[in-house]
């Protein structure tokens, strides 16, 4: 399993680009991701979505689209040239909360827009619609501990086998109050990597290893809270290792792990 990691995107508390994230890895202190009045978290711009659709797009969609745009720009690959593997461990919990709360109420009529936004492939759907991308678009999940590694593996295999760029995106939003006992996620986070078929010595290589792995410690204290909080933020360990030019072992499931080795 191999691909060239050609460009990245990142968005979370304290960083709004992959460059800003790498500056944190290098020891810079984070800037606040809150807006000026500090009353609510900032939202990604996601300007690639046409304004009319952007108004209806939920945060999960904006997160995915924002980091996807960044990865395309950083790699020089046009969005319409890449297939997509979009992942989220927990899906859009705001919409799930809305649906289940409405259905349990005295007036169980659902909003049609919220319903079509409730599909797990809403982010990749909005992305392909906004960019005119006709290639394969996937939407996947593999649990809070496994989604980053399994979905990245899925995307790298697709890139390697189909010999086409694949845009890997992973995002999770904060959990609403009713979900907190189960999934105490308090911050949104999204990452993306544009994967390009590798031609030789430029390949990042992935391999499966038997035996479970734990999530490795992060070397960036400023990101430690987010790393523990959000399933997608587990990817920070991967991005940090890549930034340091090191290989890393990620947990894949309870019996195997995924080794990622840079060129």
């Amino acid at each position: 399993m191999k691909a060239r990691f050609a460009g990245m995107g990142a968005w979370g508390p304290g960083f709004e680009t992959a460059d800003a994230l790498e500056a944190l890895f290098d020891g810079e202190m984070p800037t606040s991701a809150d807006d000026s009045d500090g009353a609510r978290p900032a939202r990604p711009a996601a300007t690639i979505i046409p304004p009319r659709e952007r108004r209806r797009a939920p945060l999960s969609v904006k997160l995915a689209v924002e980091v996807a745009s960044q990865a395309c720009e950083a790699s020089g690959i046009a969005p319409a040239d890449a297939a997509c593997v979009f992942a989220s461990a927990l899906g859009d919990l705001d919409i799930t909360d809305y649906m289940c709360r409405t259905l349990a109420s005295e007036t169980p009529q659902l909003s049609p827009t919220k319903f079509h936004n409730s599909v797990h492939n809403a982010p990749v759907g909005y992305w392909t619609i906004s960019t005119g991308d006709n290639h394969a678009g996937n939407a996947v999940a593999a649990g809070p501990d496994g989604t980053v590694a399994v979905s990245l593996m899925e995307a790298v295999i697709q890139c390697d086998i189909e010999q086409r760029p694949v845009l890997w995106v992973c995002q999770d939003i904060a959990a609403p109050p009713a979900y907190q006992a189960l999934w105490p996620v308090n911050a949104a986070c999204a990452v993306a990597i544009m994967l390009v078929p590798a031609t030789g010595g430029d390949a990042h290589r992935l391999s499966l290893a038997p035996g479970a792995a734990g999530w490795p410690a992060l070397h960036t204290p400023a990101l430690a809270a987010l790393y523990d909080d959000n399933p997608t933020a587990r990817a920070l360990a991967l991005l940090e290792a890549l930034h340091r030019g090191e290989s890393i072992c990620l947990p894949l499931n309870e019996s195997s792990s995924l080794q990622v080795t840079p060129p």
């Binding site: 797990h120 492939n121 939407a139």
Partner: peptide, 16 residues
Amino acid sequence: AHRLGIEGPALTISTA
């Protein structure tokens, strides 16, 4: 995966 004792990679695809 649990029910069948599968220990290889497991993925859920949800594209409607």
